[in-house]
């Protein structure tokens, strides 16, 4: 048991949690931020991707204790004043989702890509999304959405 202090989506939080608490569990069950999804739980699918200190990671494969003191951004932290983030807008506009399960991870991963590469090519987008699996869309519209968002960010 230990104290976990994080800044999540700009808000300081502090909770006691057992040492084996995963970051994904901490976000979902301690902070009720259920936008971060748990899919495979074996770090393959990427539904649980969040940002920690500006970099994307799979929150089902990080201990909350391990990122203690960090700044975390989840899918809930992307909107500003009720307005969707340009990446979310682009996914909506271009049908970059069907069932939506993978979407929070896809969006968080894609936002991290644009932080590092403002104008990615199709190949760079596909390479970057290597760790995010979607079983509905066939990826075409996801790639199109990321390209569209790149023109807006």
């Amino acid at each position: 048991m230990g104290k976990i202090s994080l800044e999540v989506n700009g808000r300081k939080v502090e909770k006691e949690a057992p040492d084996n608490t995963l970051l994904s569990t901490f976000l979902r069950e301690y902070l009720q931020l259920t936008g971060t999804h748990i899919g495979c739980d074996t770090s393959q699918c990427g539904a649980c991707v969040v940002h920690v200190d500006g970099n994307s990671l799979k929150s089902c494969t990080a201990l909350a204790a391990d990122v203690n003191g960090s700044k975390v951004t989840t899918i809930e932290g992307l909107e500003t004043n009720g307005k969707m983030h340009p990446m979310q807008e682009a996914f909506k506009k271009l049908h970059g989702l069907q069932c939506g399960f993978c979407t929070p991870g896809m969006v968080m991963s894609a936002v991290d890509l644009l932080q590092k590469n403002k104008k990615p090519s199709d190949t760079e987008i596909r390479d970057w999304l290597e760790g995010n699996i979607c079983r509905c869309t066939g990826y075409q519209n996801i790639v199109a959405a990321v390209k569209e968002a790149a023109t807006k960010i």
Partner: peptide
């Protein structure tokens, strides 16, 4: 190695 999120950790 792996994917970007794995390489970040």
């Amino acid at each position: 190695i792996g994917d970007p999120q794995v390489r970040n950790r």
